[in-house]
Design a protein around this nucleic acid. Sequence first.
RNA 1: GCCGGUGUAGCUCAGUGGCAGAGCAGCUGAUUCGUAAUCAGCAGGUCGGGGGUUCAAGUCCCCCCGCCGGCUCCA
Length: 629
Amino acid sequence: MPDGSSGSFDPGVTLAEINKEIGLKEAVAASVNGNLVDLSYPLNEDTEISLIALETDEGIRILRHSTSHVMAQAVKDLFPEAQPTIGPSIEEGFYYDFDYPPGFSNEDLEKITDRMKEIIKDNLSIQREVLPREEAIKLFEKKGEKYKVELIEDIPDKEVSLYRQGDFIDLCQGPHLPSTGRIKAFELLSIAGAYWRGREDNPMLQRIYGTAFPTREQLKEHLKKLEEIKKRDHRRLGRELDLFSIQDETGAGLVLWHPKGARIRNIIEQFWRDEHYRAGYEMVFSPHIARLDLWNTSGHLDFYQENMYSPMEIDEVKYEIKPMNCPFHILIYQSRLRSYRELPIRWAELGTVYRYERSGVLHGLMRVRGFTQDDAHIYCRPDQLKDEITKVLNLTLFILESFGFEQYDVYLSTRPDKYVGTLDNWESATDALRTALEEREISYELDPGQGVFYGPKIDLKIKDVLGRPWQCATIQVDFNLPERFGITYRGEDGKEHQPIMIHRALMGSLERFFGVLIEHYAGAFPLWLAPVQTIVLAITDRNIDYGNAVYQKLTESGIRAEKDFRKQTLPAKIRDAEIQKIPYMVIVGDKEERSGMVSPRSRSEGNLKEMKIEDLVSRMHEEVAQKRR
RNA sequence: GCCGGUGUAGCUCAGUGGCAGAGCAGCUGAUUCGUAAUCAGCAGGUCGGGGGUUCAAGUCCCCCCGCCGGCUCCA
């Protein structure tokens, strides 16, 4: 065993028996020579074993998988005509897909839950059986479970394993818990449609999602986290904080930025521009539409059409609304001869693009049909590629960290089956991306074959405070557009050469990034981003004049201030300001008026001592400069 | 797009074929108050849109639109 302990037993002894003598109380399965097996697995020779405790990642996966079987059993009991298909454990729970055309209702979910509780109470033992393939097919044919038959037909092995609990039997690799009674805490969460094997031309199945945990406390905690996620939902906060809206009258996936949202966006954009100029970029602007020919030259009409809107006709010429900014930047490049001395050229644009997304995939600000990319294109010589990638990485990390994101999932995607460009180019570009990542000591995962057809790429998913990943930044090498447009530069040798082009977006789109920011901060933006940084609260009408003077001073110091002089009690005003998540309240009453000071209340620290307005202003300026949370 | 759910006042939500409701927000008035909700009154609706069944439709049926969950986790 991994802890070095060992023991000798009679041949045929099961792991459960070994476990009973020397193992963990909470063991649910084991690994023998690296293979996962049930506790009922008999040992016949000397091997290395390790027992898997319930409270491990592997243990929890097994728990959830077994729970999905119990659910399938309950569904079969209650809805005998439902066809079971697959039911794996997933990241935070499990699901099971059934072919059941009438569909399940929420009441059904309750019934299924109750039945599951009975099955768990019965503590049925879960037994593994191995059958020859043909026999297993016959068995499931007899049961009328055609999806299981289809699954077995895809298994090349001579034998397949089945798991039986009570009268329920399922095709499964295992391992599983020894008995259903080991399930202590589970919850069915939602019903959804899902295509058989994820393909649209296949029948739509009914998927039931659920989750399970070793203890009730852990389950409760998880459900609390789900509530927390709901409370942070950017769509809800967007309305409550009056940041943005998406309305029927404008159309699905089209965003209206309200003044407070726009304020934040302007701060983000200003910061972004400053940092880009500082990093050696130039800003460009391009129109929203262009002649269809341009999209033909760029190849978008061939490979991107399904995301593009139909053209409009102007003076008998067809124009297309842009799904990307790159062709325009290429045209700027092409507008005159370029010398190797000019490279690298870095052009950035907050370019608004429009893409057709299927109605079902739209989601608040996270997936929309019109959005603004923080786009840039870099044209460089091959010998500059790696350096440029490094610079982009540095800028990306700097900017994302400024917004409080410090954890990432990074993926390096390599050449897919369908590609353009030479193998040499692919290899050197992929190398450049890899080296840049490694030199910056960024750990990444390889995503083989997942590159775009025109070049390899690095994708960076930021993780918010709840650890959820969001695809934002992307850095893509492009061999295609330079070739299609035939762009060149005059080299040192006086000859024409083709530059390498890099597309990159750091925040991705302002819409999605804003959505992520809202959820990351739960709407409580740090001072430098807060649309309203402070609000002056007058305690009585007597204090309004003084309150106005304070408000004036704050505003003149460049602080975004509001005032609340309503005929309301102070606690009511404080409550309203708290709900609006305003970072500082400035309370003025008779006492402050006499001393000429203010009493600030900070969102994070509560009441602060009475202080001079100037001191509050410099405290706030400092906090803004540090972009502190 | 597809499956399921859902759409009632600005928001959250009740309303199972018979007079469209509540709380919060809003407005008006009173209260002048010291760190998360003072009290009272008033107003607010094409029940998502269109069609149908019925003496009668928010409620039942059909079509359309939007939104929500999912369709990526592969025995």
